[in-house]
Nucleic acid binder design. Structure first.
Lengths: 333, 333
DNA sequence: CTGAAAGCGCTTACAG
DNA sequence: CTGAAAGCGCTTACAG
């Protein structure tokens, strides 16, 4: 069917070893043999087959990023960082999209077991420490992005700190009833952001009013949707008295909340979380996660670990940065 | 390092052939052997290695979707359809994200040559017929999504027809100066949508005014961005007389255009193209592409071709459907 | 039902 | 610089 190393060895009148050397850029090949082989290979359309190479080398030159929700601005930007950093290497990248509906852990485990890739970038997968330990036993280079485990190198953002700072900003600007739009509690970032929000309030000597923490009813993607944010903001508008500021769990929800405010023609300052591209466009204030940077850093760590598997586990936790735009303009006085 | 079929064969006191049979669900294995092997395999954490299997079988049970811009609502929904349809098979899916900055053709070619997957779904890659022919010579099952080639099975949407119908809707609603927001001309869908727009105008006996076709200056992603749409709409507002309706090349641009209208507090009816999730949310009228359906159909075709490589090439062209929402409400009278 | 053996397409010491 | 040969971890007729 497809042309193999044997075909081109025969044509060139050399051994397959020599052909292999040419394609592996070994310098132990005469210029003459090299050019001849290259010419024939080109003519016959030869290219080494990834699976055979992988098996023989016990290396696939493949890196796999595993992610649950690909259609997500956060992931997109992380991915760009990953690609940037990988561009200068000879690794290929593939993306493995797992389903939120099935067992996350089993899907990740399956991916590792198949052993297709040399290294894995597990993104936005939130497991229990005990599950991470199981994955550790597969003894494969793996970097955790957007979560934390003592077992693996990781790069993440401090959600607690981000929520804390956003809330604190409102406190310091003199707001009294600061609401929060959350999302599904089963999502770890959601829990952390709620925690940061509460802490900031407590540290400011305020009493936390649980009824000010609301989520919409829409539970797709754990509630990280415009619709959820819209619904949540409508709930806020039904509160009495009306909260005077709101920290929102994610930008995509904040966009929905923003739309609700437009529809109601009532505005309170809001701060989102993420800094997706649309946020800049819509003038949404937000806690920015350095997504691209996170992708880059993750690849950097993975490459290092591929070099030296024994090195100490390292964690990088970025601090989100408060980006002020139109949606908090009335907050400054 | 990792445990192989030999390890577990030794432990179980059988040959590797028997172990292999167990994992291939061959029924030619005694129940006794099967349970023993399964137990040992589980204990030792054994799982067949994808590359070795792939080489031995000459099949990888892998399908690869190749796509330039992953961060794109169109692709996301197509992907969901692909995953739906693949769920009931034993194929794994991986996504290969190619870069718009480099040679598209070479990246696709490279992907085919490596031969990782059994079949490919090439999405939103617009090549010349002569390049498709080159790819054909690799003789690998390949389905074209969102483009057309006589060489391969394909599933696409009729952009010309969609643009035609959107424009015609405006014509029939009595509008006179119908503008169009386009994008970079190097994009094939853009060219087709311009064509459909012009044809509808011509068929209605109107003179096409090229100056009514505008694009923003922002050229990221070939102009398929909110920003581009925003800029384009600002240009439209500077026209004299003001156009009274506008067909927009894509929803994401239409969202930008919509924002421009809000900022200017001036509204003209607009119709986008795609029907991304945000469109429903923002009440944007649009020409809907059946993205999910397209993904499903593509997998269906690929599976069929995997069965029978010789079957006749088949093309499915969906007609986009006009979805009317708020953004054309003033168009109905 | 089970095993010995050849083969998948490559890489890589080893010897020359 | 080059070739013969073993090996990567599996599958699959073939024979029993």
């Amino acid at each position: 069917m497809s042309v193999t190393i044997y075909d081109i060895a025969k044509q060139a009148g050399v051994s397959i070893a020599t052909v292999s050397r040419v394609f592996n850029n070994s310098n132990c090949v005469s210029e003459k043999a090299r050019t001849k082989i290259m010419a024939i290979a080109k003519e016959m359309g030869y290219h080494p087959q990834a699976m055979a190479q992988g098996l023989a080398r016990k290396k696939s030159k493949l890196i796999s990023v595993v992610v649950p929700v690909i259609s997500n601005h956060f992931f997109m930007e992380v991915l760009e960082g990953i690609q940037d950093e990988l561009a200068s290497t000879d690794f290929d990248l593939n993306i493995h999209n797992i389903k939120l509906s099935d067992s996350i852990f089993e899907q990740v485990e399956y991916s590792l077991k198949r052993g297709m890739a040399e290294g894995y970038l597990i993104t936005s997968v939130h497991l229990e420490e005990k599950q991470w330990k199981v994955l550790k036993s597969y003894n494969v280079p793996l970097i955790v992005i957007d979560d934390f485990s003592t077992e693996f190198d990781s790069v993440s953002v401090d959600s607690v700190e981000g929520a804390y700072n956003a809330t604190q900003y409102f406190v310091e600007s003199g707001f009294e009833r600061i609401a929060m739009i959350s999302a599904l509690n089963r999502s770890k970032p959601v829990r952390e952001r709620i925690l940061g929000y509460k802490r900031a309030l407590e540290d400011a000597g305020k009493i936390v009013d649980e009824s000010l923490i609301v989520s919409g009813e829409h539970t797709d993607r754990d509630g990280f949707t415009e619709k959820n944010g819209y619904e949540a903001m409508i709930k806020i508008f039904n509160m009495n008295p009306l909260p005077d500021a709101c920290f929102v769990n994610s930008d995509i929800q904040a966009l929905g909340a923003y739309k609700a405010m437009q529809d109601m023609q009532t505005f309170i300052p809001i701060i989102g979380f993420d800094d997706i591209q649309l946020s800049d466009f819509f003038g949404l204030s937000t806690m920015r996660q350095p997504m691209r940077e996170m992708g880059r850093m993750a690849v950097h760590k993975l490459l290092q670990r591929l070099e030296n598997r024994e090195q100490k586990v390292s964690h990088t936790v970025f601090s989100p940065e408060l980006i002020l735009r139109k949606s908090t303009e009335m907050a400054t006085h």
